[in-house]
Write a protein that binds this DNA or RNA. Structure first.
Lengths: 157, 157
DNA sequence: CCAATATAGTTGTAATCACAACTAAATGCA
DNA sequence: TGCATTTAGTTGTGATTACAACTATATTGG
């Protein structure tokens, strides 16, 4: 007679399952601002993230961008092709390492960047209006801890 | 002389930007468990979410599944084609509405479901081990509030 | 110096996705 | 009843994605 003393219910309640809820939350939050990036600036989220990294780190390479935003380098490469074609980003081969190409926002790219930044900050602020200052800090801290902790989880063990 | 008294920095710090951080967090958390679903059960996240809904709500329609997991109905339709071909899910035309097809986990599907559920709960538990009980509740509550609140944001205004 | 290895970036490919058009059945209402 | 509208589900299509193979350059160790 198998003794079933499971700690868990036999049915998974998807809508209370943390990974699912985070995914839905993130999709909703990114989706709302993605619409604005697309309609007003003709940028995808990936496009914008690349430009955001170049705004923070002018001269970064495609590889560095890829690592920073955690997106496959092939995807970054193809997104960059579009941004280069639209003259939002410029690149030049690095003098001391000709494999590497240093990327910067072009003049046009910078102008768009300067338009997008306040839209992004405004959106973030409006999002957080459902929290008071203390809650914002707590939420921030919990997200960071969970992020750090998740990396250390190995499901094989 | 333009008076610049912006409330925001001129540069966006991507790694502190809430929508970005939630996206990275969610990707990491879903990515870890996705690997297990794929390697051990040959299921994508979408496949598994469909099965999870059918575990909770046997007899749901494709449309109901689509709404529940917030995935385009065309994507659900094609994912279902695979699940039906693998005999993990069964469907039958509803007697009183012949447009509708009632979906259920098949015997094989239920067996897999019963294997995946504890893996999922274990993973969730391991994720949350970086929080104490009070932190778990706070985090839960904040996520729910943010999710509710996000829906009400209209960036056009 | 040179062969082996590592790194930056691009491209091939199949799978997946979003969005719209489409079919078929059901419903609403004059 | 009958025609317009709504709903369930599928399919077409182009864009996006993941993953691996590939090219070109740089580095390392003998």
């Amino acid at each position: 007679m198998p003794k079933r003393s499971s700690k868990h219910p036999a049915v998974l309640t998807l809508e209370r399952f943390l990974p699912y809820r985070l995914s839905i939350l993130s999709n909703r939050i990114s989706g709302i601002v993605a619409e604005t990036y697309r309609d007003k600036f003709a940028l995808s989220i990936t496009d914008w993230r690349i430009m955001a990294v170049l705004g923070e780190y002018p001269g970064a390479s495609a590889d560095e961008v890829s690592i920073k935003i955690q997106i496959e380098k092939s995807i970054v490469s193809r997104a960059l092709q579009k941004l280069l074609a639209r003259h939002l980003v410029s690149r030049e081969v690095d003098a001391s390492d000709r494999r590497r190409q240093n990327l910067t926002l072009s003049k046009t790219g910078s102008e768009i960047y300067q338009q997008v930044v306040p839209v992004s900050y405004d959106y973030e602020e409006r999002l957080q209006q459902c929290f008071n200052q203390q809650e914002r800090e707590v939420f921030d801290g919990l997200i960071d801890r969970l992020y750090e902790h998740a990396e250390s989880i190995d499901l094989e063990s």
